[in-house]
């Protein structure tokens, strides 16, 4: 089971109401390489991965939900005081007519989240390589958002999230090596 903790993993601050930045950030909420995809991908792969890697997928998958909450907090804080006119000017008119200021799992272009963003191949190496690629894509996305953002408070939180992708990628690479070692050991029996 999961236990919710009433705290953010890292403090989230934003300087001003800025629905345009919220629109970009939604990519990491309901986009292909976003935090929802990450959490669901890893937690679902656990059931068919070798025992050596189940703990890692569980812990990283769980951390991704903490990141999802951070992104939600950023979007919430960037849009909570926005008027319909400001939403429209930021390109969020399409979002507003369907959701008001509510969050929804879609990407920066408004395409709703789909399970086809993620995979579980049942082949441990194929799954872990997908996970490494997912972390690198998420890291790149954070970088592109930071490049377009002029909010120093928001960027502090985004830099934290970008660094977490680097750490996760590193741990998944180590998991691949652990499985390769295990595979090579078995050859000699």
């Amino acid at each position: 089971m999961w236990i919710y903790e009433k705290k953010l993993q890292y403090p989230v601050r934003v300087s001003t109401c800025n629905p345009m930045l919220a629109r970009f950030l939604i990519e990491q909420y309901g986009g292909a390489d976003g935090e929802l995809s990450a959490a669901l991908r890893y937690l679902n792969q656990r059931y068919s991965i070798p025992d050596e890697v189940i703990g890692l997928l569980t812990d990283i998958g769980t951390e991704e939900f903490a990141h999802l909450e951070m992104i939600a907090t950023m979007v919430y804080k960037l849009t909570k005081d926005a008027t319909p006119d400001q939403m429209k000017a930021a390109g969020l008119g399409d979002h507003y007519v369907n959701h008001d200021n509510a969050l929804f799992y879609h990407n920066a272009s408004g395409v709703p989240w789909t399970a086809s963003y993620i995979q579980a191949k049942g082949d441990p190496i194929a799954d872990l390589y997908e996970d490494i690629a997912a972390e690198e894509k998420a890291r790149a996305t954070y970088q592109w958002i930071i490049d377009m953002s002029d909010d120093p408070d928001l960027n502090d939180g985004l830099r934290f999230l970008r660094e977490r992708e680097v750490v996760h990628s590193q741990r998944f690479r180590e998991a691949v090596e652990i499985l390769k070692e295990e595979r090579d050991k078995k050859k000699y029996f």
Partner: peptide, 22 residues
């Protein structure tokens, strides 16, 4: 105090993921 907990939990999550592979 909340910031302190966030800092402590950062150490703990880092060590957790590290120990998962070490």
């Amino acid at each position: 105090l909340m910031e302190e907990l966030q800092a402590v939990d950062f150490v703990l999550v880092e060590l957790t993921l590290y120990l998962d592979t070490h």
